[in-house]
């Protein structure tokens, strides 16, 4: 059994407590317009094109067995219909301008990889499993969780919550802390910006809380989308009624990932939105704090 992972970040200090290694599963049921990792959405491998690294040697074109690579103006163009993702072009690209996003791992293999930094974890740090949505690769995730549990490392699961309740609850014995995203309290708006409604996400959160697990709420703060008074208040109200919330982590939106959309040839629809001001972030923080919640900025 193999799982598809798009990145492993070491020395990660913003994805849960302490010093952690974060593994990002590929594939997500949500398609948030502000997604910071657009390469996380698709459940298959993808080729990313870093035009700024490209020296037009056309090695890619010459090694492609499907003739899927062409040149368009000043960039390489891959015909996604004929490309079978064999990886010859990315393996041979001398400057890494073409990058294969996504790598299949056996559970054991991934366990070894993410434990490379275990000496650094100490008492509070550990592994964060993030995505995409890790629960989309449920069987693989369960295998990995079991293996990691045996190693007695701290496990954080970063989830959208958009999943079968049973599946979510079956991770309970393994997970030390959930990093749980709330993006918007209004289901219609939620659907407009993420592609799915929020009912299940919220009900799963209640269910998870009822089971007594430690939870940190992750709240991406996106100007003009979810930073209005009403939504903040509703979110805070909802969260404050739960029993096991450690903290609310406000993740201020930024558009530094805009480039990635271009590299994946995906449309980026939030061009008009800037990052929240410091003042606004502080204000929202206070709003949450008024409900007795512990708030971090940036996780």
């Amino acid at each position: 059994m193999k799982g598809l992972v798009f990145d492993i970040k070491r020395y990660s200090i913003h994805d849960g407590p302490g010093l952690r290694t974060t593994v990002f599963f590929k594939g997500c049921p949500l398609k948030c317009l502000w997604c910071h990792n657009p390469e996380s959405q698709k459940s298959t491998k993808e080729i990313m094109y870093h035009a700024e690294e490209c020296i037009f040697c056309l090695t890619c074109k010459s090694v492609c067995t499907k003739s899927a690579i062409g040149v368009e103006k000043d960039r390489i163009k891959i015909d996604l219909k004929t490309c079978d993702l064999c990886g010859e072009c990315t393996t041979n690209c001398p400057t890494n301008a073409l990058e294969m996003v996504g790598k299949f791992y056996e559970p054991e293999e991934l366990k070894d990889e993410v434990l490379k930094d275990r000496d650094f974890f100490g008492n509070d740090g550990g592994i964060t499993i993030s995505g995409g949505e890790p629960l989309m690769q449920f069987d693989f995730l369960m295998k990995l969780l079991a293996l990691l549990k045996e190693e007695q490392v701290n496990i954080a699961l970063d989830t959208t919550g958009f999943t079968d309740t049973d599946k979510l609850l079956s991770t309970l014995p393994y997970v030390d802390i959930y990093l749980y995203d709330i993006k918007h309290m209004d289901s219609k708006i939620h659907k407009k910006y993420t592609g799915v409604e929020n009912d299940k996400i919220l009900s799963n959160l209640i269910e998870l809380d009822r089971n007594g697990s430690r939870i940190s709420i992750r709240f991406p703060l996106i100007p003009s989308i979810n930073d209005d008074e009403e939504n903040i208040k509703k979110t805070a109200e909802f969260v404050s009624k739960l029993n096991n919330i450690e903290s609310v982590d406000i993740l201020p939106y930024h558009s530094m990932m805009e480039d990635k959309y271009r590299k994946l040839e995906k449309p980026f629809l939030l061009k008009h939105i800037g990052k929240p001001t410091k003042k606004r972030i502080e204000y929202v923080k206070k709003q949450f704090e008024q409900f007795g919640l512990k708030v971090n900025i940036g996780g």
């Binding site: 020395y11 200090i13 302490g18 010093l19 650094f120």
Partner: peptide, 17 residues
């Protein structure tokens, strides 16, 4: 503080090794 703690951990771990 988070950054400082992480660097302390880097030092401690490197020295443990």
């Amino acid at each position: 503080e988070k950054g400082l703690n992480a660097v302390v951990k880097l030092i401690r771990t490197y020295f443990k090794l």
